[in-house]
Computed example of a mutant assay.
Amino acid sequence: MSMIGEYLRVTAAELDRAIQDPDWALHFAEDVQDAEERSEPAPTEARHFSVSKTWDMLGFLLTRVDFPVDVIHGEEPFAEDEDWGYGPPRYLRTERVRLAARALRAITYDQLVSGVSPADLTKADVYPLAGAYPLGWDKPGALEWGRHRYDGLTQFFEAAAAAEDAMLLWLD
C-alpha cells in the first residue's frame, strides 16, 4: 500500500461544509477524483491534484527552505475519520493558499534541490524509503523524481489562489 499526497480545491462555502460535515467532504472528494480521473485536467483547471509518493520528498525540501505554509500536510485538521487514509485530513484557508502560491512561485525546483544529495533523503528516512523509490534514493536521477509534481503543485496552488479557493489535504 502506498501513501499518496492528495489535494482538493474548495470554495469558502465548501470548506465550511467540510468542517461541519467531514463525511460529506469525503464523498465530495471521491466524486471529484473519480470525475477528474476520466477527464485528466491540467493542474490549472483541476479541482483535485496528487503529488503521488513525492509528498515526503517535497516536504523535506520545503522544510529546508523554511517554507511558510505546510502545503504537504495542511495546517488545520477537520476530521478524525480514518476513511481519509493516513491521519486526519487537514485544510488551508484561502489566505494560506494565496501565501503558499506566492511562495511556491518564488522558489524553483532547482533552488529546492540545490545542495541536497540523495544520501540526505536516505539519512532523513524520506518516504518512500530507499529501495521503494523506483530507482532508489542512491541512484542517479532520484532528485528529479519530484520536479514534475512540484511544478504541477505550483500551478495548482496558483489557480486555487486566483479563484480564492481554500484547500483540503490528506494522505491516502
Rank of each mutant, 00 (worst) to 15 (best):
G131N: 10
G131Y: 07
G131M: 05
G131R: 09
G131C: 06
A132W: 11
A132F: 10
A132K: 14
A132D: 12
A132T: 04
A132C: 00
A132M: 07
A132Y: 09
Y133D: 12
Y133V: 07
Y133N: 13
P134V: 12
P134C: 04
L135I: 12
L135G: 15
L135V: 13
L135C: 07
G136Q: 09
G136N: 04
W137E: 01
W137K: 03
W137S: 03
W137H: 09
W137I: 02
D138Y: 05
D138R: 15
D138G: 15
D138L: 15
D138E: 14
D138W: 10
D138Q: 15
K139M: 04
K139N: 07
K139V: 02
K139W: 03
K139H: 10
P140A: 06
P140M: 06
P140I: 05
P140S: 06
P140Q: 09
P140W: 04
P140G: 07
G141H: 08
G141S: 13
G141Y: 11
G141D: 09
G141T: 05
G141R: 12
G141Q: 08
A142T: 05
A142G: 01
A142W: 00
A142D: 00
L143G: 07
L143Q: 11
L143S: 08
E144H: 13
E144P: 01
E144W: 08
E144N: 14
E144A: 14
E144T: 06
E144V: 04
W145V: 02
W145P: 00
W145N: 03
W145E: 02
W145D: 00
W145L: 10
W145Q: 06
G146I: 04
G146Q: 10
G146P: 03
R147M: 13
R147E: 15
R147I: 08
R147H: 15
R147L: 15
R147P: 11
R147D: 14
H148W: 13
H148I: 01
H148A: 13
H148K: 12
R149H: 14
R149F: 09
R149Y: 13
R149G: 00
R149C: 05
Y150D: 00
Y150M: 01
Y150V: 02
G152F: 12
G152K: 03
G152L: 10
G152R: 12
G152D: 10
G152V: 13
G152C: 07
L153V: 06
L153T: 05
T154A: 04
T154H: 00
T154M: 01
T154Y: 01
T154I: 01
Q155A: 12
Q155K: 07
Q155M: 09
Q155Y: 00
Q155S: 09
Q155D: 03
F156H: 05
F156Q: 02
F157T: 02
F157E: 04
F157M: 05
E158K: 14
E158G: 15
E158Q: 15
E158T: 14
E158H: 15
E158F: 11
E158W: 04
A159F: 05
A159N: 10
A159R: 06
A159H: 04
A159Y: 03
A159P: 06
A159C: 09
A159G: 08
A160W: 07
A160R: 12
A160E: 08
A160Y: 09
A160H: 11
A160M: 07
A161G: 11
A161H: 05
A161V: 08
A161D: 05
A161I: 04
A161L: 02
A161F: 06
